[in-house]
Amino acid sequence: MERMLAKEQIGDWIRTLRGWEVFGPVLQDGVWSYQPADTVQLDHPNTAQPPKGFAFPQREVFFTFEQIKGEPPRLTPVAPKGGQQVVFGVRPCDARGLPRMDRVFTETFDDVYYRTRRGSLAYVGLACNQPPSPHCFCKSVGGSPVSTEGLDVLMTDLGDRYLVAAVTATGEKLMQAAGDLLTEPTGVDRSEAGRLRLAAITHPQRAVNDVASVPPRLKKGFDSSLWEDLARPCISCGICTFLCPTCHCFDINDETNGSTPLKGSRVRTWDSCQFPDFTMHSSGHNPRETLGSRLRQRVCHKFQYFHENFGMFQCVGCGRCVAGCPVGIDIIAVVNQVAASAGEG
C-alpha cells in the first residue's frame, strides 16, 4: 500500500492514531531523542540514541521480592507497561536493529519482557535521501538508505509531501486510520520517489571492504597484534555499545529497599563489553582483560560470531560508534585493517 501525505498534515495523521502512544524525534538541549509527540517534524539527521530502548529499555524490573523473616520470599513479576507505541522517523539502519534483537531475545529462550514490548511496538521509518552522518555505512552490511527491514511503514520525503508505504499489516492499519488524509500517489509522485531512491542508494558511503570475506578473515585474525594496537587509545567507556542499535548485553542486579522485612527488586540494566569488569570472575581472573581483547569482542561479535550464529551481521552501519567515540576508534577502519592483514599470506 502506497499513499501520499502532505507534510503539514502529519499531525492530523498522528491524531487519528487512537490507542497508540506516538513518539517522534525531538531536539532538546542539543540532543535528538524520541519523545512523546502530538506531531512530528522529520528534519532530524538521526537521534543520538537508536530507538532500541522501546523494546529493550536501559532498566527493566523483572520482579519484586519481599521476605518476612521465617517466611518464604514473595516474588511478584513486574509486567511492562501495556499499550501500543509507534515511533515516527526511525532511520532504516536503526530499524534493522530490531530483527537482530529478535534473534537474541526470542530464540532459544523466549524473553517475555522483550517480546511484550516488541509486540506492541511499531516503527514508521523515514528513508535517508541524504546520509545523515559522514560515517553511515548501511550498504556495507546488507542494508540501504531505503531498507524496509524492521519497519512497519516507510516514508520518503518528497519535499512538500511524503510517500507513505506500508511494510507490514500493522503498518497498513496505521495508514488506514488516516482515512482520507492519505491520497493515491500520482505518476509524478512515483517517478519523483523513484528518482530520490536511486539517488539515495547511489550516494557514496564509507565502506567495509569485501564484507563477505570479513567473518572468516576476522576468525583468522583473532591473534593479530593489530587488536592491541588499534585499541591503544580506547578509554573503556560504553559509548560505542550504549549508542548501538544492536548491542544487547546486560547486567542483572538486586536493588534493595529496606532490610526488615527484606524488600527489593531484581533489575536488568544495560551493560557493555567495553567495561573492564564485564567478564571479570569473582576470583579476579578476567578472560578479556586487555583493551585489545575487548575491542576484538565488540568487533568480532558484530562481524563474525553473530554471523556464524545467525547468518547476518550484527551491525547495521548507523555510524554512531564511529562518530561518538571520544578517541577516534572507528569500526570500519578496524574491520578493514584486521581483515586486510588476515588476508595476507
Partner: peptide, 16 residues
C-alpha cells in the same frame, strides 16, 4: 533534572 535523567551511564566522562 532534565540533564540527569538523560544520562545513560556510559561513563565516558569518567573514563576520559
Amino acid at each position: 533534572q532534565r540533564q540527569f535523567e538523560r544520562c545513560i551511564r556510559c561513563f565516558a566522562c569518567r573514563s576520559v
